[in-house]
Amino acid sequence: MNTVDRKGLWMTVMAFVVWGVVPLYWHLLKQVPSFQIIAHRIVWSSILLLGWLFLRHGRQWLRTIREQPRALTLLGVTSLLIAFNWGLYIWAVNAGHVVETSLGYFINPLINVVLGVLVLRERLTRLQWVGVGFAFAGVAWLTWQAGSPPWIALGLALSFGAYGLLRKVVSVEAVGGLGVESLYLFLPALAFVVWGEQGHGGGFIQGWGWQIDLLLILGGVVSAIPLIGFSYGVRRIPLTIVGLLQYIAPSIQFLIGVFVFKEAFGTAQAIGFATIWTGLIIFAGDNLWRSRKRSVVTGVAAVAEPVVATRR
């Protein structure tokens, strides 16, 4: 643990914990239409994030990205993906599907793996393929039991997986890229908020009460702070640790769905989730073992190098 940046580690843990408990926050806004919540979330998080970027970097962060036309185009696509992901998530939470949202973020890492294999031509070990197979079997079981695929979980996993894939191939700094996405989304979201206030489901300032208005504004903080913390931490700790920490959020969401919101979770769901969790354990375990093996080899090579040098 001495080699891990402790501040980066705790910032990353903080981000995943906030993402885990955030269903409780959005549930407080249940009386507000979901599209209004997502519009306000985009508006207030954009103001906070863009303000932070301009105060810290001036216009330089934007000039750097504007010099890459391809990056601007791809960030336009990722802005739509993240807006869809946020909107589906908030709607699902307030419609009583917190457990299924947790399933989406449990299988998201494996969706990332599949996309990496299909698009980036990455290779998996046999044991990792076994883990993917277990996860696929779990989703198939839940589909068979429910009579239809878990569309919410798949929608969240696929949209966030595609978002991660595109952000991986865009060579821009994480928070700066998020700032450009905010620029794309800000005006449409603001226009929707203004339209809503013209008698189309809005109630900001005059309709929902100051408590709800304050929660909507602070929703920008709830959205932006963990993203900034994650961006800070992920650059300072090994990706293998990030890969293990990412299960904090869906685990907390799952517990909240079952024990706080009392959502149905019977034997059939338990079998499906257990199968998926088995796949995740196999995949994460193999990844962690190989990472430690590489660290040992690297350490041995570092020790051996001075010996070889002295013999020369």
Rank of each mutant, 00 (worst) to 15 (best):
M1V: 14
T3S: 15
G8E: 02
M11E: 02
A15D: 04
V22K: 06
Y25R: 12
W26M: 07
L28S: 12
K30G: 13
I42E: 04
V43W: 00
W44E: 08
S45P: 08
L50T: 06
W52F: 14
H57S: 11
R63H: 08
T78A: 06
L81D: 00
N94Q: 11
V98G: 02
V113D: 04
V113Q: 05
V114Y: 05
V114Q: 04
V117A: 10
E122I: 09
T125S: 14
V132T: 02
A135F: 00
A146V: 05
L156V: 03
F160D: 03
F160K: 01
V170M: 12
S171I: 07
A174G: 11
A174E: 13
G176H: 14
G179M: 07
L187T: 13
A189W: 03
Q211K: 15
L216R: 01
L218E: 13
G220K: 08
V222P: 06
S223I: 04
L227T: 15
Y232M: 08
G233D: 02
V234W: 08
P238H: 09
L255P: 03
I256Q: 02
I256D: 01
F259L: 13
E263Q: 10
E263W: 06
Q269P: 02
T278N: 03
G285C: 09
V296D: 10
R312H: 10
